[in-house]
Every structure is written in C-alpha cells, then in structure tokens.
C-alpha cells in the first residue's frame, strides 16, 4: 500500500520575461489501487504537474511538498524517483537515436530492480509484454521512439510501465493521438498493470473518451494551475456535456 501526497505545490518556469508561476497550489492524494482523472483545458498546467513530480529540470518548485510513503520526492534525483516507484508516461516521448528499445528496456529494468534480469526469463518477459500490447517483436531492435507513430510511442510507454512495475503512474495524455483500437489496447495494458500490482494512477486527459476504458475513482478538474473542482466519475459526464467553459476566466 503506497500513498502519494501532493501539498500546496507551486511551480514556476523561467521565461524570457522572468519567472512565471504555472502551478498555483496543487493538493492531491493518490493511494494504491486508486485512479484519479485530472481533466482540464490545454495550457492549464497538467503536464507541468506531471513533469514536476518526475523531476524535469525545467520546472522550479517554489513551495509545497510531494511525498511517496512519507519520503520527500522533491529531494530525489530523477532516477531516484523512478527507483522509488514513480513512473511518468509522457505526452511526448523523446527519441534517443542509436539506442535500441531492447538495450534501453534492459538498462532501465536493471537500474530499477538493482540487478540485471536473467537473460532466459527476460527475453520471454519482453516478448509477452510486447505481444499483449500488439507490438511487433521487430520493435525491440528499433531505436527508442525514432520514427515511431504517435500510437507506437504510447504503446512503448505502457510497455515500459509493465516492465518497470511502478507503484504510482502518471499518464500524461496517453490517449491523445490514438485511434479506437489502439486506445483499447493501451487501456487494457494500463488495467492489467493496475490489477497485477495495485497501481495508483494519475490519469491526465483532455477528453472523457479514455475514461470508458479506464474507470476513474475520482475526477479532478484542473484549471489555471490548480484543482478547481473534485468529484466522482459523474463529474466527467458533466464535463463531457458542458466542457471547461465555466472554469475558464471570463
């Protein structure tokens, strides 16, 4: 049982005009087995929240805390956060030329588990995880995200989540750019990991579409760098109907 607690988080980025505050006091608690949908308009700061928790150097935490099972996440380096059990499926996964998927996965799994996986079981483990996500085995020999379609990048993110077995996953617009079939495959992957290991999920999305496949326990409306309304799954239905207009500054 794990708990991620975000308290009064304020985050800024450096711009040409100076420092600009993007997150203006975010409070959120996620426990193992819970799925929290974070829904909000473009530019409201959803990715900023995701990146800040993962430790992207571009974002400066000006105040607030993030803890995982009582341990200060903000004091950790980026790789330490992953080792502590945090995983971020990125909205825009990064290309790494010359580094094969298989080498990347093996290196990451070795780092997270603290020892290299046994060659014999490892090959099977990757194969199974790939086929469950309907990924061609030839993917393993391609360079990380290089020339991947939008859908392939998202499947590759979920593949990593399956293999790295985090405690808490932040899925940043994992549904964007997916057709219906891919959305179903990716969602099934998320649900599989969730049921296997009691994953806590922060599901960031713009649309309600993915919520048909991944059922949220809580829905949080995000606007202007903070959570402005909270509720159960019924809140998503309301957003579906009315959009975000009422939460935007007039």
């Amino acid at each position: 049982m794990s708990t991620l607690i975000i308290k009064d988080l304020h985050v800024s980025v450096t711009t040409e005009e100076g420092s600009k505050e993007i997150l203006k006091g975010v409070d959120l608690t996620i426990k193992s087995g819970e799925t929290h949908a974070i829904m909000g308009p473009n530019g409201s700061g959803k990715s900023t929240l995701a990146y800040s928790i993962a430790g992207h150097p571009k974002y400066t935490i000006t105040s607030g805390t993030v803890t995982l099972d009582g341990v200060d996440v903000l004091a950790m380096t980026v790789d330490e956060r992953a080792k502590a059990g945090l995983f971020l499926a990125m909205q825009y996964p990064v290309e790494v030329p010359g580094v094969s998927v298989s080498n990347f996965l093996r290196t990451a799994v070795t780092a997270i588990r603290g020892e290299a996986p046994k060659v014999r079981t490892w090959v099977g483990e990757v194969k199974t995880a790939m086929s469950e996500l309907s990924m061609d085995p030839a993917f393993a020999e391609r360079n990380v995200n290089e020339g991947f379609s939008g859908g392939e990048k998202k499947r590759h993110e979920i593949l990593q989540m399956e293999l790295l077995k985090p405690k808490m996953a932040i899925l940043d617009e994992t549904d964007s750019g997916l057709d219906v079939d891919a959305l179903r495959i990716v969602s099934e992957g998320v649900n599989r990991v969730k049921s296997n290991q009691d994953l806590g999920i922060m599901l960031i999305t713009h649309y309600t579409r993915i919520l048909r496949y991944i059922k949220p326990d809580f829905v949080h409306v995000f606007a202007g760098g903070r959570i402005v309304e909270e509720g159960g799954p019924e809140l998503a239905d309301k957003l579906e109907e009315n959009g975000y207009a009422e939460y935007l500054p007039a």
Binding site: G55, P57, T77, M90
Partner: peptide, 12 residues
C-alpha cells in the same frame, strides 16, 4: 533525452 532515460531509473 537525458531526462527521458533518467525518468526510467537510469542514473545521470
């Protein structure tokens, strides 16, 4: 690129 790799647990 570095952030992506580090976010998967790979030391800097």
């Amino acid at each position: 690129q570095l952030f992506y790799l580090e976010s998967r647990g790979i030391p800097a």
